[in-house]
């Protein structure tokens, strides 16, 4: 455990906390442009967060301690998640603490807490959202795990740092299995981040919402934390996508110079990723909720296929 690793770790956490709302703002901006609307400013998410933090919390009579604790827990889960994914350097002090499976577990932990919080007040919408969230989750979670497994089979490791090192720094090779995994991963991340084909982040139409239904009862600082956590989740998923499929440019060392270059490359990749996300969202239509299992089931099976393709095409015999 050296000083640079600690520094890189803290820097990564700070960048995640700062960049995550901007990434969300950027996606919204791109989407507005693509849909011929005038776009909100890039920092809009910050303004919203700051407004929410300043407001008083209105808490339902029936809300319990769990309801009040959940935003903090979810926020810290997401902060931890975005600092585990190697984005700036593969030499991080947290990287041995949690591998890919633990990362998926971390997302699941946050999901369980947000679903429980949704059920806590005991309103019709809260439990509806919780049910839908868990039902999307139980299909998306194994699919995400299988995407990681494909990468793990390639690099013979579930440690995220080793995966990125293998994919980015060994001799360049084309891994066809990653094509499958990539498609599956995009589908999962759309579902997990409450994006258009599955959920609509901007809707408040009762029958179609998932994420928004769970957090209906939240207000003030609690809502701010949950929104921020959602931004962090989007950020973390984007970083996972970058780390698995476009890892070129993530340095192994963590001296300041390479960190600086890595940060610049990261911002560039995130900008492109955000634009692609906005493009997908603009081009697709929201599905009925009962098409969601089909969508996610397809993602899951594609991820399984990715492993099989790896065994056929890439594994030595």
């Amino acid at each position: 455990m050296n000083f640079y690793a600690l520094f890189a770790q803290l820097l990564e956490l700070a960048i995640a906390l700062i960049l995550a709302p901007i990434l969300t703002g950027w996606v919204n901006q791109c989407r507005a442009w693509l849909q011929n609307r005038s776009a909100p400013p890039l920092l809009q998410t910050y303004y919203t967060l700051s407004k929410l933090f300043h407001k008083d919390v209105l808490l339902a009579h029936n809300a319990s301690t769990l309801f009040r604790a959940a935003p903090y827990i979810i926020f810290s889960c997401m902060a931890l998640a975005s600092s585990i994914v190697p984005t700036l350097s593969t030499d991080l002090i947290f990287s041995p603490a949690a591998d890919a499976i633990a990362l998926v577990g971390l997302f699941a932990l946050a999901r369980v807490f947000i679903a429980l919080a949704g059920m806590d007040v005991g309103t019709a919408f809260g439990s509806l959202g919780a049910r839908r969230e868990m039902f999307i989750g139980f299909l998306a979670e194994p699919a995400l795990l299988m995407v990681f497994f494909t990468a793990s089979l390639i690099s013979q490791s579930t440690s995220l740092s080793t995966i990125v090192e293998t994919l980015a720094h060994n001799e360049i090779a084309i891994y066809p299995s990653l094509a499958f995994a990539g498609v599956a991963f995009s589908m999962v991340s759309l579902a997990e981040n409450a994006r258009v084909p599955i959920d609509n982040p901007t809707t408040h139409l009762e029958l179609t919402m998932v994420h928004e239904a769970m957090i209906l009862e939240y207000s003030g600082r609690h809502l701010a934390l949950i929104e921020w956590a959602a931004c962090l989740k989007l950020f973390a998923y984007s970083c996972i996508g970058i780390a698995l499929f476009f890892p070129f440019g993530i340095p192994e060392a963590s001296d300041p110079a390479s960190l600086l270059i890595a940060a610049a490359i990261l911002v560039f990749k995130l900008a492109i990723g955000g634009f692609v996300l906005a493009l997908i969202e603009t081009l697709s239509a929201k599905m009925r909720i009962f098409r969601a299992p089909e969508f996610l089931g397809t993602a899951f099976l594609l991820a399984v296929l990715a492993m099989l393709v790896h065994l056929l095409l890439e594994a030595g015999r």
Binding site: S155, Q156, N170, A173, Y175, L313
Partner: peptide
């Protein structure tokens, strides 16, 4: 081993990708 894939020439890798 991860190194085994590198024994295939690039054109073979592209064809593998096409197959996938």
């Amino acid at each position: 081993s991860p190194s085994l894939i590198h024994t295939i020439p690039l054109s073979g890798q592209v064809i593998n990708l096409c197959a996938a």
